[in-house]
Nucleic acid binder design. Structure first.
Lengths: 180, 180
DNA sequence: GTCTATATGCTGATAGAC
DNA sequence: GTCTATCAGCATATAGAC
């Protein structure tokens, strides 16, 4: 059910997908879905929370090397790799925030800020080491995340460039953007 | 009507907003809206098309200076200024593409590609002039647009930085990212 | 655990009065 | 030009049979 909901929400949007459509995709009747989720809102929240939990856990488990610059490269490559592996979940996590209830929104927002905080800490360390030159760390954090996440809007498997080639080029741009 | 629809679509999403809600915001009954739009789909399309037309016309009217680097700076500052001036329209133009009919989607997509083509042409000129160093112009185009458009996700008027200060910093990052 | 049936309410769009 | 009234259909969620 979660798999079917993820694909349908990503394609048509949460509000445009009915529980009947999800049920049809799974091969059951709509009523049966309520054995596995309290309601449609909880289903969306669970998908988004799982995605953010996976993201934070994967980053914690990532090898990061020594020094702020190595950390920054690890972050850029990790972010691109992780996001290209699950485009539907990424799409939902960014597009369906406004369809969350207030409480659920606050919870997801906290996870997102935690992840942004990881990059921000790297940039601050790089600034302290004088290997990164940025007039405003918080703003640079937002700019880099937007640039890296943007890969998902255009990258398609089987295209002109491999994922690794894309990561190489983006890492060059990240390095240039922070004057490293 | 268009003003009310723009605000409501941006806040709740096209699929989650009813014609009755729009009518209530305008102060009329739902049926009266159909004197001004053929249907809900046309209303969305008109909003998006107007936004893209405004964007392209404003860029054409923008003073651009001499040389590819001056052009690039003009583009970066223009993009940030224009997008910060109309956050609702920008939000809709990026988030509601999947709610367009096939024909309408193709039309909006063509306008979007035209705009991207403007930046791409600047980068190619800069590459020819050897003032820009980028291994893949198309990819750099997408990365820069994502970075610049990302301003809308976090910038709020009355915050720590003025729009001009933000544009200054972003222009520095754009210049660094293309090795200029 | 899944089904059918159903409650209650909202949806986009139209017809015709004024 | 705006209203009221309405059509036909779909929405979420639940109840109770099997």
């Amino acid at each position: 059910m979660r798999e079917a909901a993820l694909a349908l929400f990503a394609q048509h949007g949460f509000a445009a997908v009915s529980m009947r459509q999800i049920a049809a995709e799974v091969g059951v009747q709509a009523g049966a879905l309520y054995l596995y989720t309290k309601d449609k809102q909880s289903l969306l929240f669970d998908l988004m929370q799982s995605h953010m939990d996976d993201l934070l856990a994967a980053w914690q488990a990532e090898p990061k090397g020594d020094g702020a610059l190595a950390h920054l490269e690890a972050f850029a490559r990790f972010h691109i790799r992780f996001h290209l592996e699950r485009p539907d979940a990424v799409f939902i996590a960014y597009m369906e925030l406004r369809n969350l209830s207030d409480d659920n929104f606050a919870a997801i927002e906290a996870l997102r800020r935690t992840y942004e905080g990881e990059l921000e800490a790297i940039l601050r360390a790089g600034h302290a080491e004088s290997v990164i030159h940025a007039p405003d760390i918080r703003l640079t954090t937002m700019a880099l995340i937007a640039m890296l996440t943007g890969v998902n809007t255009w990258y398609r498997d089987g295209g002109r460039l491999s994922r690794d080639a894309v990561a190489d080029i983006y890492w060059d741009m990240v390095r240039g953007a922070v004057g490293a």
